[in-house]
C-alpha cells in the first residue's frame, strides 16, 4: 500500500469517527431545546388602568383616578358594544405575534367574606358579531350580557373566567376603587388565545 494511500485512509477513518461522535452528541441532546418560550400575557396594570382613565368623551369618563362614576358607567355601557369598547380601550394591547385574539371583561367586584358579588360588567372583544365571547361568568352567562350578577355562598363562588381551552391564557388586573360610597375592586380580565 502506498504511503499516500495509508495517510488518506487515516484521514477518512478519522472523519468517519468524527461524524459518528457528532451524530451521537446531537442524538443525546435531542429534545433538550425542543420547547420554545411559552406565549406570555404581560399587560402592565398601570398602563391598562391609565388607558381606562383617559376617555376623550366626558360622558363616558367613568373612571376618575380611584373613583367610579355610576351614571357615566351606565351611559358607557348603554352606548357601547363590545367591538367599540375594544377599539376604545384595548386596541393598543393587541399582540398578534403571540395571540390570535384577546377579549376583555371589565367588572366591579365586591368581596365579602362569604360571597363574591359582580356589581357591573362590560365586555370588550373584536370580530365577534355573534357575541360569542370567550369570557364567561358561568357557562350560561357571558360577560357583558347582564348588568349585575350575584353569587352567594363560598361553595358557589364564581368569577368571570376564560374558556378552558389549553391554548387560552388569562390574567386579571385589579384596582381598588370607590363606587357608590364603598371600596370595591375594579377588575379587568384578559383572555387570550395563543397561536
Amino acid at each position: 500500500m502506498a504511503k499516500s494511500q495509508v495517510i488518506s485512509m487515516d484521514f477518512i477513518m478519522a472523519f468517519v469517527i468524527y461524524l459518528f461522535a457528532l451524530s451521537f452528541f446531537f442524538f443525546s441532546m435531542q429534545g433538550i431545546l425542543a420547547t420554545g418560550a411559552s406565549a406570555s400575557l404581560d399587560v402592565p396594570s398601570e398602563l391598562m388602568f391609565g388607558k381606562l382613565e383617559i376617555v376623550e368623551n366626558e360622558d363616558y369618563d367613568f373612571l376618575d383616578s380611584s373613583k367610579v362614576d355610576d351614571a357615566k358607567l351606565t351611559k358607557f355601557m348603554e352606548d357601547f358594544n363590545p367591538r367599540k369598547t375594544y377599539d376604545f380601550f384595548f386596541v393598543d394591547f393587541e399582540d398578534f405575534r403571540q395571540f390570535t385574539r384577546i377579549d376583555y371583561c371589565v367588572y366591579l367586584e365586591r368581596i365579602n367574606e362569604n360571597s363574591t358579588d359582580i356589581l357591573r360588567n362590560v365586555a370588550a372583544s373584536k370580530d365577534h358579531p355573534s357575541q360569542d365571547y370567550s369570557i364567561m361568568v358561568t357557562p350560561e352567562f357571558k360577560c357583558g350580557q347582564q348588568e349585575k350578577m350575584l353569587y352567594q355562598g363560598i361553595a358557589n363562588k364564581e368569577y368571570p373566567r376564560c374558556s378552558p381551552s389549553s391554548k387560552s391564557e388569562s390574567v386579571v388586573l385589579t384596582k381598588p376603587v370607590l363606587y357608590k360610597g364603598e371600596i370595591v375592586n375594579l377588575k379587568v380580565l384578559i383572555c387570550a388565545e395563543k397561536r
Partner: peptide
C-alpha cells in the same frame, strides 16, 4: 406571577 394576579388568572406552559 399568577398567584399575585389572583383568580381566575391562568397560564399554560409548554414544558418537555
Amino acid at each position: 406571577k399568577i398567584y399575585y394576579y389572583g383568580p381566575p388568572s391562568k397560564s399554560v406552559l409548554n414544558v418537555e
